[in-house]
Amino acid sequence: MRRDWDRHTCARRGHITYAPDETDLRTRLHADTALGTAWRCLRCGDFALGEPHGSGPADEAPLVPRGKALRDLFILRFLAVERLLRGLLIVVAAWAVWKFSNSQDAVHRIFDENLTVFKPVTDHFHYDLDHSPIVDTIRKTFDYKHSTLIYVAAALVVYALVEIVEAFGLWWGQRWAEYLTVVATAAFLPLEVYELTEHVSVLKICTLLLNIAAVLWIMLSKRLFGLRGGVVAFEAERHSASLLEVETSAGALPQAA
């Protein structure tokens, strides 16, 4: 059975209704029932009892993700959670490098001790923390001098901030975040390939494939860098899926079978 993302989302978050000023369109979206007034939801298309959540000109109505756009948003939010978790892990790593940068031996010893705290969680998700590219990179810095460790900690903080900014931007479906994700992820793909030449693991292979798939999917589905018509085609696709656009173009509600 095919999942109805529109109705599933409305069941969790509630309907979104709008009363346009245009008389014909307003009439098609409104119904009087024995239980009271009802307005058609801009997401799932069902009529919902109660007053509309907003009103005004049709071109000022909220552009509610529905159909394919809603499924795409779900995938972006999955990527956002992954980016956020990765960013937080990198913050912890940066803190460990900075905190104990005065003594390479202490850094090595205490980092390994603190790393074991996260192992029950990472083991639960089948994440090989000992051979993580991030952890391996940090361990290579243990023989560096103090100033080098400070630079490494600063670089990790910057990397973590990029990941966290990506996460919040992707969660809210911001186009700039999609560009940032593609550029940042693609920039680290050579490093991930190099890591595979050093030590091959199922996790590293899966991570590389996931990142490649994410880059390709975002570029093509969001029409970045002018692909598939670019931003003009992307915006046209978004508006073509809008319930108000459909109603305005059709001129009438679809007839029941």
Rank of each mutant, 00 (worst) to 15 (best):
L85T: 11
R2D: 15
L35M: 12
G87K: 00
G54N: 03
A187R: 11
T33L: 06
E245C: 05
A96Q: 09
P20E: 12
L203D: 13
D123Y: 07
H126Y: 11
G56T: 08
Q104S: 09
H15S: 13
T248E: 12
H199T: 12
W5I: 14
A96N: 07
R83N: 15
G54S: 05
Y179A: 01
A214K: 06
G54I: 03
N102A: 15
V91T: 08
A11T: 10
S249M: 11
D130W: 00
I138Y: 01
E237L: 15
D46Y: 04
D4F: 06
V157S: 14
E237R: 15
T148E: 06
R223V: 08
A34S: 14
A69K: 01
A236T: 05
Y194M: 08
G251K: 02
T37E: 14
T207G: 14
V97F: 07
T248F: 02
V182F: 08
S132R: 03
D128I: 13
G230Y: 02
E195Y: 12
R66S: 13
R71D: 12
L76M: 10
V162S: 09
V162H: 03
L42Q: 02
V64A: 04
A187Y: 10
A177K: 00
L216P: 06
R12L: 14
G87S: 00
E245K: 07
A93E: 07
L49N: 04
P254A: 09
L79N: 05
L253H: 03
S240I: 00
G251P: 02
V231N: 14
V121Y: 15
F47I: 06
H239E: 09
L115D: 11
E237W: 13
L180N: 00
P52K: 00
L156Y: 12
H53W: 05
I110D: 00
T33C: 07
K119Q: 15
A38M: 00
E235V: 05
R77S: 06
L203S: 11
V215E: 06
Q255L: 13
D112S: 15
V162P: 02
L129D: 05
T137Q: 11
W98F: 10
A252V: 02
W217L: 12
L209D: 09
L161H: 01
A213M: 10
I212Q: 02
L49Y: 05
P190K: 10
C10Y: 00
L209Y: 12
